[in-house]
Write a protein that binds this DNA or RNA. Structure first.
Lengths: 189, 189, 189, 189
DNA sequence: CATGAATGAGTATTCATTCAT
DNA sequence: GATGAATGAATACTCATTCAT
């Protein structure tokens, strides 16, 4: 693992734990075991490091979800796998995933951040959902519903569930399993 | 309007627009038209001011929702009114409502903030949903579903929809209307 | 003497001794005996403090020179008094005067500084020389020479002599006295 | 052109444009098209590079002026050629000459720099003027004036004119031509 | 109650310099 | 000779908080 990679990983963990404002470049450097100057050498600025850290997580997730939903036959199946895969991913990346929450367009962390760029990446996740909905309407596994709004609402539900789990003090056992059922009940034929 | 009230309103607007970290006490003082010392005189610290600003919004909302759902007969009706009322409230308080987003337990703004206190208040909103679900299961307007998890998921969906609307660069016309349908489809008998 | 004034005086002394880049805001604060934050409270930024420090010196000098040249009859007399007064002023303000050198448009200290604003103030000194030259040409005490260029050259000579004295390691006794003679010999009828 | 020479030339251009403090070793390396380490390999430190860059300019200038004044008969002629040659040199080396301004003993750029060494070189320029004055007094082309002080004042005038031209926002057409006349009028018999 | 002067710890960022390859 | 990764001290600037008036 190069020092550059160590810095990115450290950033993902610290941003995940402390948020954008709560993270200092010194914390990242220390966690990565490098001099603070090296962080700037590779990533120029705090904002840029944040974006790089978030982008890497989301790229990994998108690749993961493409793979997991590749073999599904019906649109409803694919949607179910998508939801399952998304939630699984958050659990498999407990320490770094919250960085993706924080740099997502749904975040309230830093209103000044440039969300256009990262917003485009997130849009690809919602496009996947739309695609599954369309396929499901054609193959009869999904009811006739407005596709775009529903895609956003499905993603909104997932986001809400993930936030409940990761950020909230509430302990709700079985929340993730129920999330899939909650959504599918609403859209499947 | 007393100076104390002016400060609270200013805080709600600035926190809403700039986030916790992005807000300075000087900004609040200027917006309220008072000296910065007075902000501390009344609210002791930034964190405390933030909590006071958020609490006031949520108290107002809870009172509003109690009233709006008071006359509903079935559990499903009450739930529908709750969702509608919640979303309406966000639109009627565009400039101050984001402060509630930011100080909610679902926020990723500042992980160090003490959300226990305000978390309890938010719990009352979820309890309302649980209450409607139970009532609906009894009166037959709601399907047999796990009440607690579903209450959290309904709230998660609402939170997700509100975030899409308030924080996201995406423009999704009809999202709010569809939110109610999306949820009711999933839980009503 | 208010703390604000103490900061300005400290700035004039430190900028004079250490130059723009060699001066730190901490040095100024310490010399003034105040907390570093107060320097920013009153003067916003290093560049702004530098301009304020320089402006105060030049304003004082201009007022001083107006007074000293007020009673002169011929243009040649006034010019001689101007040169004498200018050079005297540098000696009477040994510790602060170099700040004016450094923030003058003739300075090579900081190429990024906004010289337009301060350039306008220095122009008033050159305008005074032009005025004396014109008066002298009329009253016959000054030869027929191109006024603008000569005014700039007279000021250039003064600047060069002052730099020799204040910045250079060379020790040239009698340089200041000879400066007046050198210039007057060139322009007086 | 060796890489060592490329670095020196790059340094002369960047120091000329950005000043000592405003220049970074990275800027020099980039302009020269070499790795930053190589700059240190050849020139050890920033201060040393600055001195080397300045020395090279002044050596070139001195050689140039010796040649240009070689054939002059009277002291006054030689002085006139010196002034003309000096000013011409600044125009023929517009992009690199300001480095000489900045590392001259007349500079206000960085008071901490060791200007003793380079001060000695500049002294040779003033010695040339003295030599011409002495010759002129002997051959009757120059008036009886104190030689040392006048030599310094002539150089001061030239420095002042050059600064006006290179650093100042003022546009004074014909300034350089008038400079020679201004000086010669003062000293020639 | 109200002001705003004053404090000082904290932060992102820069940059000369070193050194292993 | 030549590279550029790596270091860490230094600096301008911010801001919550205190307190005399």
């Amino acid at each position: 693992m190069t020092k550059k990679d160590k810095i990115l990983l450290a950033a993902q963990e610290i941003f995940a734990r402390c948020g954008y404002a709560g993270t200092t470049m010194k914390m990242v450097a220390e966690q990565a075991g490098v001099a603070s100057g090296l962080v700037f050498h590779y990533y120029d600025s705090k904002e840029n490091l944040f974006m790089a850290a978030g982008s890497e997580v989301i790229d990994t997730m998108i690749a993961d979800l493409r793979e997991k939903t590749a073999g599904c036959v019906t649109g409803c199946d694919a949607l179910g796998e998508f939801i399952k895969g998304y939630l699984e991913f958050t659990l498999e990346n407990k320490t770094t995933f919250p960085t993706m929450i924080r740099c997502s367009p749904f975040s309230d962390d830093n209103p000044d951040l440039d969300r256009e760029r990262i917003g485009a990446k997130f849009r690809r996740l919602i496009d996947m959902i739309e695609e599954f909905l369309n396929r499901g309407i054609e193959d009869g596994s999904i009811a006739e519903i407005p596709v775009t709004q529903t895609a956003f609402l499905i993603y909104a539900s997932i986001v809400g569930a993930v936030r409940t789990r990761f950020l909230t003090p509430y302990d709700v056992p079985g929340l993730y399993d129920e999330t899939r059922r909650f959504i599918l009940r609403s859209v499947c034929a």
